[in-house]
Simulated scan of single mutants.
Amino acid sequence: MKKIVFYMSMFSIFFSATALHAQEVKVYAALGAGAYTLKYSESGPARAFSTKKTALPAGILRLGVDYGYLGAEIRVGVVKAGSGTYGAGTLGSASPFNLKLQASPFISYLAKFQYPVSKSFNTYLLLGGTAAKLRITPTATGLFLNSNKTKTGFTYGIGVEYKPRPLFAVGLEWIQYWTDVKIVESGGNQSKASFGGFGLSFRRSFD
C-alpha cells in the first residue's frame, strides 16, 4: 500500500507540474498487445517449487501525456492464464495435477523519459509500479497452493516508436512489470512471482 501511495503521489506531482504548461502537453491513447512470461516459485525448508509460463497473450490500454523529454502514463491490461500438468510427487501430491497461473488484471502507473532520435523515431525509458492480481488454481486438493492476491511491484522497461504520421505512432517495447514480488512468507518459506515481456502498440496523439 505504501508503494501505491508513493507512486501515485509522484504521478500526481508530475501531472500537476506539466499542467502549468498545458499548451505544450500532448495527450495520447494507445492500444497494445503483448507476449508475456509469468514465473512463480516457492523456496524454504518445507518445500521447493518453480514454474514458468511463456508467450502468454496480453491486451493493454494506455493513456498518457508527453511534455518534452518527459511523460507519464497509466495502463490497464489483462493477461491470459497459463496452465500445465505436474506429475505425482510434486509438492507432495499423490497424483498428477493441473495448475493454472495468471497475473491479471493489472494497472501500471509510469514515468516516461524519452529521447527523439529524429522526427520519425523516438526512444523511451519507463519507471514506475504495477498492481496485479495473482491467481494460482490447482486441480488437486491439499496442496496449499491456492492464491488470489493483489500485489504491487517495481516496473521498468524500454521502447522505441516509429511515427509514420505526426499524430500516429507504432511502438515496440520490452517491459518487466514484476521482479520477484513476494506473495507469501511464512515459517521460513516464501513464494515470489515475476512477469513481463515484449509488446506492440498503436498510439494516437491529440494536440
Rank of each mutant, 00 (worst) to 15 (best):
G188R: 03
A29Q: 13
N146Y: 10
N98E: 13
S93P: 00
D207I: 05
K39Y: 07
K119W: 11
T51K: 05
G32D: 10
G129N: 14
Q190M: 15
I74N: 03
G64P: 06
V27G: 13
I4K: 12
N146C: 11
T85L: 13
S118M: 10
N122I: 06
K192Y: 15
Y177I: 04
N189F: 07
S43G: 14
V76F: 14
A132C: 09
G199A: 15
A22Y: 10
W178P: 02
V184N: 14
P116E: 14
S83H: 15
V27H: 15
L38C: 12
E24K: 08
F15W: 06
G34R: 02
Y86M: 12
G87A: 15
G197C: 05
K149R: 14
Y36N: 06
G171C: 07
Q114A: 12
G171V: 03
Q190L: 10
D207F: 13
M8V: 02
G199C: 04
G77K: 08
Y177A: 07
G187K: 00
Y162V: 14
N148E: 09
S104T: 07
N122C: 09
Y40C: 05
A35D: 01
T90S: 00
T179Y: 08
G89H: 11
Y86C: 12
I158F: 15
A103F: 06
G171W: 04
P105E: 05
S95F: 11
S186K: 14
T54D: 05
I107F: 06
L91A: 09
R75N: 12
A88F: 08
E173F: 02
G187D: 08
K39W: 09
K163R: 08
I136G: 08
Y109N: 00
T137C: 11
E161M: 05
F15L: 10
V27S: 11
W178E: 06
N122H: 14
G188S: 00
L200Y: 03
Q23P: 05
T152V: 02
A169H: 02
K163D: 14
K52V: 01
M1Q: 08
W174H: 04
T152L: 08
G71L: 02
L126W: 03
G157V: 00
R135F: 12
A35Q: 03
S186N: 15
V117F: 11
L125I: 15
F106K: 04
Q102G: 13
Y36A: 05
I183D: 15
F144Q: 12
G64V: 00
T85K: 07
V25K: 03
T155P: 01
A81C: 10
S9D: 01
A103G: 07
R165G: 09
S120L: 10
F14D: 01
S93W: 05
S9Y: 00
F11G: 02
Y36V: 00
S95T: 07
F121T: 08
Q102Y: 14
A72S: 01
E161H: 07
K80Q: 13
K80Y: 10
I4T: 07
G142K: 04
G142S: 05
G32V: 11
I60C: 13
K26W: 12
E185A: 11
V65N: 11
T123E: 14
Y7T: 00
I175N: 03
L200R: 00
K3S: 11
G153T: 01
E161Q: 15
A169Y: 02
A46P: 03
A58G: 02
L31M: 07
G171A: 04
